[in-house]
Design a protein around this nucleic acid. Sequence first.
DNA 1: ACCTGAACACCGTTCAAGT
DNA 2: ACCTGAACACCGTTCAAGT
Lengths: 218, 218
Amino acid sequence: MARPRKPLLSRDRIVAAAVQLVDAEGLEAVSTRRLAAALGVSGPSLYNHFRTKDEILDAVADTVSARVDLSMFEEGDPRDWRTALHDWAHSYRDALADHPNVVPVLARGPRRRPAGLRLADAVFGGMTAAGWPAAQATRIGALMRYFILGSAVGSFAGGFVDDEQAYDPGDYPHLGQAHLLAERRREVDEGAFETGLAALLDGLALQFEALVGESPAG
Amino acid sequence: MARPRKPLLSRDRIVAAAVQLVDAEGLEAVSTRRLAAALGVSGPSLYNHFRTKDEILDAVADTVSARVDLSMFEEGDPRDWRTALHDWAHSYRDALADHPNVVPVLARGPRRRPAGLRLADAVFGGMTAAGWPAAQATRIGALMRYFILGSAVGSFAGGFVDDEQAYDPGDYPHLGQAHLLAERRREVDEGAFETGLAALLDGLALQFEALVGESPAG
DNA sequence: ACCTGAACACCGTTCAAGT
DNA sequence: ACCTGAACACCGTTCAAGT
């Protein structure tokens, strides 16, 4: 075939096919040959549009980051950091839950990914606008990321095998019901996320009160 | 050489070499051929001791889990769940921080790994002994795991490139200092972990008070 | 039982050749 | 500029052959 009149590929088409493949079959299924085959071209063709496979995965990660709603940090009352953080955390988690196989790539950090950087910028900007000192705003961005990424990188309930025999009462006296976790996976993980998020925000509110309590009330 | 008088390999020797390799060069450096070479044997020899490479990685993950201190859930005052959770979280994080490249394997969950199951058993047992209802104890195990795994799966500060040019003020108005994060990596990540853990425990304490407040005071 | 080399079906990436 | 097939140095795993 050699060079066609109109390019067969584009960065967007490659990324879209990669998202489909990673969602359907996992990160390890994304090989340059399989991805190229899904696009109807041969493996090396991808290298006309991306320098490495890693750059393709970075682009995939950034489309996931781009789906996270950040509007709450710019609209509404800037002082209501708690509501903003709560709504953002849910939007963030939902985006990751739609593409769980991409989470290990996101775990590398924003690096130079535009949507990843916009996300970090919005949280930090939102927290400082609400009155948090810069150092604390950085910490909040980090600790929220820990919690949200951790909740998405692997299901808690899904990590337990659905086999009663696996939980010998002599070895694990408190895991008698653990084999039931797998089938209630969504419920357990969502409940834990909600409980953890509420605790995190309650705890931060306590710190915030102590902080503003030191300066004259406005 | 064929079969030697004394076996050249053992599961323990293989796991120890795999830990060294994954710590020094990362998860993707652990190939059966490289691991075998480090042990002075040929690649297929490993299959006399493990059925798949994945089983080797599971064994590696379990040695990391085994280093987490669980004594706080059995010694001391069972009612002091807050201190137990705090100390356990630090021990857990320290174990993961010593082997960050193993965290993606741990994210699969405890499955049938003995040390992983003992860890889950101890937390759940500790929380129920302290007076938390079973459903809440499960959630606490899950949400603590989210936070700790998330803090270890990728550094927050290390995810930002150390290049001032990468943070165009027009695109990211609040990231003017972000290029400094990478070099203060340890400090930033440890501060965020401590702040987040304190918030989490404060928030859970609030929930616990509400819970025991409903029944007659003891 | 426990090691070996050969072999199979894969990888990511480079490169000269085609238009 | 953008695609191709061939080639390189890798993978995980199976298996017959050796002791």
